[in-house]
Amino acid sequence: MAVQTDLQNRTERTLGSSSWIGRLRALDLSSPRHADKLGYILLAPAVLLIFVILVYPILLSVDLSLQDVDIPRIGETREPYTLDNYTKLFGSAEFWRASWVSLKLIVVVTSACFAIGLATALLVNQHFKGRTLARLFVALPWAVPEVIAVVTWWWMFDSSFGLINWLLVTLDLADKPIAWLSQPVPAFLVVSIVMIWKGYPFVSIMLLAGLQAIPEDHYQAAKVDGAGAWQRLFWITLPSLLPVFGVTMILVVLWVFRDFAVVFILTGGGPIGATQTLSMMTYEQAFGFFRMGFASAIGVVTLVICVLATRLMVSRMAKSMY
C-alpha cells in the first residue's frame, strides 16, 4: 500500500502534482485498485444500448398494454390504466388457438431440428474424406437469408407451378396437385418443414461443437470397458452433450416462438388461423388492425412465457450434467 502511494506521489510530481489533469493521468485504470472502475466504464456503452433498444421498449409495451389505446401518439394525453386488454385477450378464442399453434410448432420443429441436428452432427464428426465439404452442406441452410429461403420454399410448394407438386405427380405419389398452403394441415406441415430446414443447421453446429469437446479418452476408456457403439452414444455422448442441449434448446424454442418471416411469407397465418402463431397475431393486431394496446398485451404475455420457459430449461439442463 505504502509503496503504491509513494509511486503515485512520484508520478504526480513528475506530471505536475496539483493540476487535475496530472491527477487524471496518474489514475492508472489498469492497476488492480481501479480494475473494477475500468470494467464498468467498458461495460457502459453496451448497458446503455441495451437500455435504449430493449428495456425501454419493453417498459413502453407494458405501459401500452395497460391502456385501451389503438394508435398511440406522442404528446397526446394518455388513457387511464385498465386491465381490459388482458381480460379481452384471455377471453378470446383466437389467442388460445394461436398459443396452441405456437406450442405445436415448438414441439414439432424443435424435436425434428434436434433429431436431424444430432444425426448430422454425429455424421460430420466422423473422420471421412470430404468431411469439410459435408460440414459446409450441413450448415448451408443457416447461411441463406431467411426471406430468400422462405420465398424459394413458397415457390416450391406453389400448388400450380411448384416443384414439390410436380415431383409428387411425376413420381405417382399423388394423383392431383396438393393445395399446400390453402388447407390447414398441409399449411402447418409446410411451415414446419421450412422452419426445420432453416433451424436444424444451428442445432447441428452447436452439437458438433459439443461433440468435439468430449475428450477422446472417454470413448477409449468406454471401448476398453466393453461399451458398444450404442452404449457409447447413450452413456457418454448424450450425457456429455446435455449442457449444450440445454442452451441450444432454449435458443431454438425462442427462435420458433418469435419467428415471424416464415409464417408471414408462406401463409400469413392462414388458412383460417391454422398457422397463426402468437408473434403473427401480435403483428396482425398491431399493424393490421392498429390495436396497439391489445397487441402489446399479447407481446407482454409472450415475453412472460419465454422467460418462464427459459428459466425452466436452464435450471433443469444445467443441473442434470453436474
Partner: peptide, 14 residues
C-alpha cells in the same frame, strides 16, 4: 484388459 489413462477419463456425469 483394463486401462488407466493419463487424464483418468472419468465420466463427469456419473
Amino acid at each position: 484388459i483394463a486401462m488407466v489413462f493419463q487424464n483418468y477419463a472419468l465420466y463427469p456425469h456419473l
